[in-house]
Nucleic acid binder design. Sequence first.
DNA 1: TACTTATTGAAAATGATTTTCAATAGCGAA
DNA 2: TTCGCTATTGAAAATCATTTTCAATAAGTA
Lengths: 138, 138
Amino acid sequence: MVADTWLEQLHDNGYRVTAARRAVVDTVHSSTHALTPIEVYDQARKKYRVLGLVTVYRTLEKLEELHLIQRVHQPQGCQAFISAGIGHQHLLLCKNCGDVAFFEGDDLDALTASIAKKTGYQIQEHWLQLFGLCGKCK
Amino acid sequence: MVADTWLEQLHDNGYRVTAARRAVVDTVHSSTHALTPIEVYDQARKKYRVLGLVTVYRTLEKLEELHLIQRVHQPQGCQAFISAGIGHQHLLLCKNCGDVAFFEGDDLDALTASIAKKTGYQIQEHWLQLFGLCGKCK
DNA sequence: TACTTATTGAAAATGATTTTCAATAGCGAA
DNA sequence: TTCGCTATTGAAAATCATTTTCAATAAGTA
Ligand SMILES: [Mn+2]
Ligand SMILES: [Mn+2]
Ligand SMILES: [Zn+2]
Ligand SMILES: [Zn+2]
């Protein structure tokens, strides 16, 4: 499975590759939905029955630290994680089924320049997230 | 104080105007920083000593319901609230001092149209938030 | 002023996340 | 391969944020 890259990254950063971590990594890596720790736990336990919820938290923490996953902020809550895109990407979430798509190529330079001028702020980062209905749900 | 509008709104929606609510409303209304429930509690207690933290939660809930305040999502957490802007506005946050500015006039129509085409999604809403340094901090 | 009932704060309950700890297992060195 | 060090594990306890319960109080209308 393609999740091998994540395991390699863990290993290259001095973390051990264990059965518990493999189960968590497989689960999160293969999901197109943002998953909460409990959801990861439930799914990963199908692959590795003795997994503990604490280990899910600890593994997610490391994956986030390595920028392999990212936290997804939504009106209903902000505990879910999803595979991080490569490079500068943003999320597009289906309000019906929760499916997540990535997109890039947003050009906010003109906007940020104008806002910087108006507000006197020096702008460094932006969060942009779109919500709607996916092809199947609309 | 200008917070009277919020109190009127509470009253017009069938909620009673109490000393506890006045203290919470004054605090949140006059802040240019996003405040967590505990922070609201600490500040509001200077105005109304016997205030309970539960009442802060309950009042914030009502203010949010009436769209007078909004939750602010940040890397460090998503529990803080700030006065909601009027109409369609977005936030610009100072990463140093936490000061919040509002802006409007973003035009994402071209972007969303292009993303809709590429992804097959029907786009309904967007979240946009900028981070940087305010005039004083930069 | 009197009455109805929304609101209050304290305390307990809940839910999510973190810490502690002794047993285990990954992995680099020999 | 085997060995030994130590990172990792899961259970249980602790912590932290938020919600619920409840009896006393006070807002607002008649
Ligand atoms: Mn958030
Ligand atoms: Mn906008
Ligand atoms: Zn969908
Ligand atoms: Zn600042």
